[in-house]
């Protein structure tokens, strides 16, 4: 019998991507996608269930569908796109409900993958150049997104400790770049003048969006237990990243930089406080644990930046490609109508 997978955040970038890859995997029998909004990618056999942000109906779904695998991608790591209240609701309460549902006695869950972020390490002047999975933060968490992700990881650890027979993998992704992803960094890099902090040129590390999905699939296939950093090889200075994208730097004053950041956010230039920290002190992620587990990256940090830069150049000519529109009736027809010949599982 194949896997029965539950994906959270189907309407988000990662949920949609993961579901697409799962659909191509013949060993996956059932894919259930939870989401607050409709998927924005074309899916063939994923069942979309609309829920509220904190998954109050989740325990019913877990019971009813007997899922054995949960891929938790629905975590807000971009604080510029939602209020900290909504972020708390999605990240902390959502994860709490997810694990509450997964640990009920009727649950048959035996694999859990959680997509966290290297934001949990923070970014301060006292940091080591490389963070390993076991490194501790140099300072207490300052920003709401960091605090909420740390709480999420707390729930993940608790769940893993309470359910030793469940394989729980916690993936911490560094900043993602690629052809399609939109983050505060990509928005900054698409402006003609890219913000930086005067007198600082931090080293950053990126991971390509394809490697993100591949890493999620890899830990699932290998049933890897534990915490893993996911980041492309190599550190790049911010000025180098900006130059690779063919843009110029617009330095902000180093004194009062968080104030400058929040002022810029007011006029529509997203510069969340955790990004200001990152643009001051940078962050290096030791990715060797996942490599030792056998994962090989397709892209380095520089490769991810280049992929983004090329896609951005293409977009400047062509504009955004049209988005897929989810139509419930059409989707239902393809999934359940006897008229459709379904032979994708051979």
């Amino acid at each position: 019998m194949g896997r029965r997978v539950l994906v959270t955040g189907l309407g988000s970038f990662w949920g949609g991507r993961v579901a697409q890859v799962l659909e191509a995997d013949s060993s996956v029998d059932v894919i259930i996608g939870l989401g607050t909004r409709a998927p924005t990618v074309e899916l063939e056999r994923t069942e979309y269930v609309r829920t509220d942000e904190s998954y109050s109906i989740l325990s019913r779904i877990v019971r009813a569908t007997q899922v054995d695998t949960i891929i938790h991608t629905f975590l807000v790591v971009d604080s510029s796109q939602s209020s900290s209240r909504r972020m708390h609701e999605i990240n902390v309460i959502g994860t709490m409900n997810l694990f509450a549902a997964a640990s009920q006695p009727e649950s048959r869950v035996c694999n859990v993958v959680v997509k966290s972020s290297t934001l949990v390490y923070g970014s301060t002047y006292a940091d080591p150049v490389w963070f390993t999975e076991d490194s501790r933060r140099s300072a207490l968490p300052k920003h709401p997104v960091e605090r909420s992700l740390l709480e999420v990881e707390g729930y993940v650890r608790d769940y893993a400790a309470d359910n030793p027979d469940v394989s729980v993998s916690l993936l911490r992704f560094s900043n993602v770049l690629g052809e399609d992803i939109v983050t505060p960094i990509t928005r900054a890099l698409e402006r003609p003048l890219v913000p930086s902090i005067f007198g600082f040129d931090p080293r950053l590390q990126f991971v390509h969006e394809d490697d993100v999905v591949r890493a999620i699939m890899y830990v699932l296939d290998q049933e890897l237990d534990g915490t893993f950093n996911v980041a492309g090889d190599g550190l790049l200075t911010w000025s180098e990243v900006v130059a690779m994208c063919g843009k110029r730097l617009a330095p902000l004053p180093p004194v009062g930089r968080s104030l400058a950041g929040s002022l810029l956010s007011r006029i529509g230039i997203d510069l969340p406080p955790e990004l200001v920290d990152l643009l001051t002190y940078g962050r290096g992620i030791d990715n060797r644990r996942l490599k030792r587990a056998g994962f090989d990256y397709w892209h380095t940090s520089a490769g991810a930046v280049r992929a983004f830069a090329e896609a951005a150049r293409l977009r400047s000519t062509f504009g955004d490609r049209p988005e897929y529109h989810y139509e419930r009736d059409v989707e239902q027809f393809f999934r359940h109508s006897p008229a459709v010949v379904r032979d994708h599982r051979t």
Binding site: D180, V182, E323
Partner: peptide, 30 residues
């Protein structure tokens, strides 16, 4: 539109078709 997780998608992903030679090199490119 509110964006969940890290962002929204723009185009159809093409996971499988990325040629292996398009990207990286030795991990130690720092």
């Amino acid at each position: 539109r509110p964006m969940a997780a890290e962002g929204s998608r723009r185009t159809r992903p093409n996971l499988v078709a990325v040629p292996a030679d398009e990207d990286d090199g030795p991990p130690d490119e720092t």
